[in-house]
Amino acid sequence: MLTRIAGNCFWLARYLERCENNARLLRMAEAHTCLPESVDDPVGLWSTALEVGGTLDDYESRLGVLERSQVVRYMVLDRDNPSGILACMRALRDNARTARHLLTEQSWEAINESWLEAQQLDEARLADVGVEGIVVWTIQRCRLIRGCFEDLWRDALPHVLDLGAAVERADFTARILAEMVPPLLKHGMAVPDLCGPVCRRWRSLLIGLGMTETWRRERAQALEPVEVLRLILLHPTSPHSLLVNVRHMATAITGFAGADRGGRSLSIAHAFERQVMAADIPALCGEGLHTFLTALTTTTNRLGGEVNAEHFT
C-alpha cells in the first residue's frame, strides 16, 4: 500500500469518526435544550459542543454570539467548519477518492452517495427534519460506510482505517472529558440525585460519547461519578472506551506495518495502553484529571505525528 494512500485512508477514517462524533455532540446539546434547566440557560451545552469539536474560537470570531439555531447551522451546514457534518463528509469523500481503486464499489458508492445527500442539506431540510433527524441520518450514513468496509480485503487497508478511527475516538474522548467532567466534579463524588440536573449532565456526557447503552448494560448501581469515569476510560469491550481504542491502535499498527516494523509509533501505542491501564480513577476525580487528560491529548497527537512520519510519508 502506498504510504500516501495509507495516509489518506487514515484521514478518511478520522473524518468518518469525526462526523459521527459531531452528530452526537449535536444530539447531546439539543437534548439538553429540552430539559427544564435550559429555559434559564439558553447557551446550555452549545459552547461545550463547539469547544469539544475544537471550533469555539472559529465560531466566535466569525459568527459571534452563541445562539442555538446559528450553532446548529454551523455544526451541520458550514463548509468552513472543519468539524461540521458537511465538511467532514466532504473531507472523507476527498480522501476516499484517492484510494478509490482499493475500496470496494459498494464502499465507494456508500461514501459518494453520502456526500451527494449531504449536499442536499440546507436550512429548509434542517427545519423540516429537525436536529435529531439530521443526527440520525448522519449516524446511519457513517455506520453504512463502516459496514461496507467489512468487505475490504484483509490486507493493510482495514488496519489503517482502524487506526484512524481509534486515534480520532481517543482524541474525542479526551476532549469531551476535559470539557465536561471538571465542572461536574465540583459537585462532589457522591451519587447525584437521580432526578436532578447534575445527574442529567452526567447523562449528557454519556450521550455525547455514544455510551448510554454501554452504561445501561454495565452498571451495577446508580450513576456514580467514579464508575462512569471507569466505564469511559477502562471498559474492556465497549467500542467507545478509551482502553479499547488505545489497544486498537497497537493492533492496527502491527497489522499494517508488521510486528517487527511498528517502530516508535508502536512503542508509543504500547506505552499509551500502559498509561491508560494505570489510571487511578478515584485520584482522577480529585486533582489529577487535568494532568491525565492533558497527557492523553499529548500522547494522541504524538502518536498521530509519529505514525504519519514513520508509515504514511
Binding site: C34, S38, G130
Partner: peptide, 9 residues
Amino acid sequence: QRLFPELFR
C-alpha cells in the same frame, strides 16, 4: 422532544 423541541425551550 424530537418533534417540538422549541416547546420545551
